[in-house]
Nucleic acid binder design. Structure first.
Lengths: 232, 232
DNA sequence: CGTTTTGTTGACTCCTATCAATAAAGGTGG
DNA sequence: CCACCTTTATTGATAGGAGTCAACAAAACG
């Protein structure tokens, strides 16, 4: 049952477009792994021994400094690819933010499989290019936006990437209400802010009637237009 | 004479590893273009009509906001690839910071050539992955580093990527003295700082004997160890 | 329930942005 | 080659936004 054939992300991850016979090979070199929230999959700077696909859950990629300062440099959602193929080391740590299921491969196995399957490499290239675009857009936020603009931008992005449990909604659906898979500290680590500043900005957006916060981790976008205006 | 055969970056760009016959095809669909400092090659958000390879010079990739705030999201040097293959739009502007020579391709021509040449796509994938790593490292700088740490980190990186005119030095040579291809404003746009803050940090590093500034655009690293310490 | 973790709020500080005035380079044309 | 003008960089004074430190509140957890 844990095979590519029954995989829920089968048609949306980089393994889509592979033929039946190819999938069997891929299935043989990879295996499923269940992660609990907070579990580390890859340590920053370690030899790049594995790569993976996210099946379910949200994970963070992060860089940190010796003195403890940390910056989340990427968030990965279902269908996203994790790890550093064709490289000696994975320059960022990977940790599950929610319970998660991933499909992991030994990097060397994956590398050689990929090199023999141009369609897979092409998919990976398209994904990597898209991720680079997203990352660069985030640089504008980190370099030039105010705390309020950062949080507003973040909430809008999360509402797009967090799809509803039910698959009935259209592909580009934006959720008005959702559960944040992040603590305040993690939101700070994504936005380059302290936890206190994040908290104050949440409070401000709520006080101004732009969002509602039914509970610690849940957010409801009350006035999307206004939130977009505040995103800069 | 303007052919791939005589190209100075022939063996270091994504076109390396292509065979003679393939190079001829590539040569036919691309052409050289000379840019003067300040010339815009691609506008932010425009249809992705062209991609290019940098032969000589330095160019910036930047994102900006309606109110004029700008963030440089990437710097490209000789052998680097420019543009957004397989995508509808190029989400950042590309402008030459120095006089530059590039080898440009219509994106559609390049896309179809690439899809037929897995070795080229593989090279492009490796480069894109490396660029993504560099970009993510930059996020730590933008999100968490102080002005002094940012400038120190920047000077160290530039000294690595700016190779000497003479090709005699080893591949990973780090220049102690070099000409910055950037104005103070551009340094600010890379680091997410204002021009005044950049200027003050330059002055401070000079006053402390870590660097010397023989002229506006030239920098000499006097105490690399100390500069590294200040880079965080 | 008590304990621990996480989040909020307040007071205050500090770093960087902003505003403003010079100073130094760089170009241009006589 | 030099005066003139423009652009770029430096420096100072001040303000403001986010960080820091600290107390408290509210969930979460056992």
């Amino acid at each position: 049952m844990d095979s590519c054939q029954t995989c829920v992300i089968r048609n949306r991850a980089i393994c889509s477009e592979l033929e039946f016979s190819e999938l069997e090979v891929l299935n043989a070199i990879g295996h499923r792994r269940q992660l609990v929230a907070g579990e580390q999959l890859i340590w920053e700077g370690e030899d790049a021994v594995l790569v993976a696909n996210v099946i379910e859950g949200v994970l963070k990629l992060s860089n940190s400094m010796e003195d403890g300062r940390e910056q989340i440099v990427g968030l990965v959602y279902p269908t996203d690819f994790i790890g550093r193929p064709f490289g000696a080391t994975t320059p960022y740590g990977v940790e599950a933010l929610t319970d998660a299921r991933v499909c992991v491969f030994a990097r060397r196995d994956f590398d050689s499989f990929a090199r023999q399957h141009p369609r897979l490499e092409h998919k990976l290239l398209e994904r990597t290019l898209a991720e680079l675009d997203r990352t660069r857009a985030w640089m504008l936020l980190l370099g030039r936006k105010s705390a309020e603009e950062r949080l507003a931008t973040f909430l809008l992005e999360v509402s797009q990437r967090l799809e509803p449990e039910t698959c009935s909604a259209p592909d580009n659906a934006r959720q008005a209400a959702f559960e944040l898979p992040f603590s305040r500290q993690q939101v700070g680590d994504v936005l380059g802010l302290t936890i206190e500043t994040v908290s104050r900005q949440f409070t401000k957006l709520k006080r101004d009637g732009v969002i509602d916060l039914p509970s610690r981790r849940s957010v409801e976008i009350v006035d999307r237009r206004e939130l977009e205006a505040r995103a800069g």
